[in-house]
Simulated scan of single mutants.
Amino acid sequence: MTSPVIDARGVHVRLGASHVLRGVDLRVDPGEVVALLGANGSGKSTLVRTVVGVLTPSQGEVSLLGHPLGNGVPWHRVGYVPQRVSAAAGVPSTAAEVVASGLLHGRRLALPRGWRDRAREALDQVGLADRADDATSQLSGGQQQRVLIARALVREPEVLVLDEPVAGVDRPSQEAFAATMTRLIGSGLTVLVVLHELGELAGLVTRAVVLRHGKVVHDGAPPRPHGGHDATGHEHVHPHTSELPVLTTEVGLTDGPLGTGSTEVGP
């Protein structure tokens, strides 16, 4: 039997007085493209942050690439695109420098040789190679989000975890993201992605997991797209402004192993 890439069992997460996740099971096998769906507050982002080690479950177990969360996880094989990036102390960064920060993990405190070429190659995958030397402040919100995706891709990961990668970005950026994901998934990449609706990724998602009030209420075939907002049963959840991706010019090159700015992730 194939070992799962992501295996969460009986996961509970409490944040302060809130019991956010209530006994969640999630298994993602190699080559799957799994969408996490649900309304705001259902626990989607909490679950992916727990999967990549940013949050610690109060109960239950999580393994990633066959290893319990912790120092044993091969973090260089994992790409993570957070919903929001906090500014860290540092100097204004170019797109290439932000992408290169994805090469730092664990005990690696210096960029490897050839990092500029690798950063440009990753930016080329998201259609931004020509903006490599531009300050991130000169990029649109959609372009900034594509830079964050390139930062995850520069590792050449085996599994990619994305938290609402297209929330609040323009249509061209959504289409560019879908084209990039089509190429990567074709090469065998395993993906766990949080979405409000399938949108441009509808044809790529192999399975949908729907959360409601911190519990899994559906795990199976992706929902069929509705005809529009007026269709019966249509649920369209608009992201809050606070959930939109933010990338400032002061993103440090020594952010956490998965580019979260957290020291809680990885070795």
Rank of each mutant, 00 (worst) to 15 (best):
S3F: 07
V5C: 12
I6C: 03
I6L: 13
V11A: 07
H12N: 05
V13W: 01
R14Y: 05
L15C: 07
G16I: 07
L21G: 00
R22I: 01
R27S: 15
D29C: 12
G31C: 09
E32N: 06
E32C: 05
V34E: 07
K44Q: 07
S45L: 10
L47P: 00
V48F: 08
V48Q: 08
V52M: 09
G53P: 02
G53K: 10
T56N: 12
G60E: 09
H67A: 15
W75R: 15
R77D: 08
V78S: 04
Q83I: 05
S86L: 15
A87F: 03
A88C: 13
A95P: 01
A96T: 04
S101M: 13
L104N: 13
R107L: 15
W115V: 06
A119M: 11
R120D: 01
Q125M: 15
G127K: 11
G127M: 02
A129V: 13
G142L: 03
G142A: 02
V147D: 05
A150H: 00
L153Q: 03
V154L: 05
R155D: 08
R155A: 04
R155H: 06
E156W: 00
P157V: 08
P157C: 09
E158R: 15
L160H: 02
L160E: 02
D163I: 06
D163C: 09
E164R: 06
E164Q: 12
E164F: 08
P165G: 10
A167V: 04
V169E: 00
V191R: 00
L195E: 05
L201K: 03
L201H: 07
V210Q: 06
H213P: 04
V217I: 14
P222G: 10
P223R: 01
H226R: 14
G228Y: 00
D230Y: 09
H234G: 03
H236Q: 13
H238K: 11
P239V: 03
H240G: 15
T241P: 08
S242M: 11
L244M: 12
P245K: 11
T248D: 10
G252F: 03
T254S: 15
P257F: 03
G259N: 02
G261F: 01
S262W: 14
P267E: 07
